[in-house]
Design a binder for these strands. Structure first.
Lengths: 126, 126
DNA sequence: ACGGTATTCAACCAGGTGGTTGACTTCCAC
DNA sequence: GTGGAAGTCAACCACCTGGTTGAATACCGT
């Protein structure tokens, strides 16, 4: 699954992890502080932080034996951009009812189009 | 994992599924048309469509034995809103260096704050 | 009515995920 | 230097996921 976007989406596909992000948006916090808020072991929360870190959503500092977690906003940008691209396309298609004409035209040629004959699992939907 | 946002994020945490979304953003398509583009069985693509459908990202029509898939933009809104909320908070914290003052102040009270004493796994990060 | 096309259903499998517990390492404070 | 606090490492478990194949269903065109 290794690619960047997949990792970020996967990281946020968990309520606990989204809640961690929401807390960190308010300010940095240590594992202990965070873990206290959840009905699970501290190690489990540590694993969640690890996932967020691998996805580039947080970084962890060092203050003696504390390792405060810090939210990084940049990666959220990445996702937002991806979403916006397709959200807008879909909305346009929805608004413009005359789009049906284009679609009727499109049903003429079986194989969708040109310029995309290589394996789509590589370099998909950038 | 059942909650709505988790399902949507999880659905997009797969390159094949993101690619499907990107294709559907350009126009509705049937399973057969879509499956032709991927190096996997048609049934596998059908499963992916199922996941997208369960997440509310697509709906499927009926045209005789065809079941054209149609992208729904609304759910993308949901995600965008969630992302924007925290992206903005994080960016603000980043821009305003004077934020350190607030954080120093914050380190005064151990338990973060009021109004959230119940189990955080329920109703997390709305 | 038949054959082909479009899709779904079901069983199975390898590998990943979210959680547990127990032991270990680090570092401060006294 | 010892004790306790903060964090990490490792093994283990139940369940979910992404893929496979094979068979079944539904519908159109001739």
């Amino acid at each position: 699954m290794s690619d960047e976007l997949s990792q970020v989406f996967a990281a946020l596909a968990d309520p606990t992890r989204r809640d961690l992000v929401s807390r960190l948006a308010a300010g940095d916090a240590t594992l202990g502080e965070l873990a206290a808020a959840y009905p699970m072991s501290l190690q489990a929360v540590a694993k969640h932080l690890r996932v967020l870190q691998d996805a580039g959503l947080i970084t962890r500092g060092r203050d003696a034996q504390r390792r405060p977690a810090h939210l990084e906003a940049e990666v959220l940008d990445l996702m937002t951009k991806w979403l916006e691209r397709y959200r807008r396309k879909a909305e346009e298609r929805y608004r413009r009812l005359d789009g049906v004409l284009a679609e009727l035209d499109e049903s003429g040629h079986q194989l969708p189009d040109t310029t995309e004959s290589q394996d789509p699992t590589k370099g998909m939907a950038s």
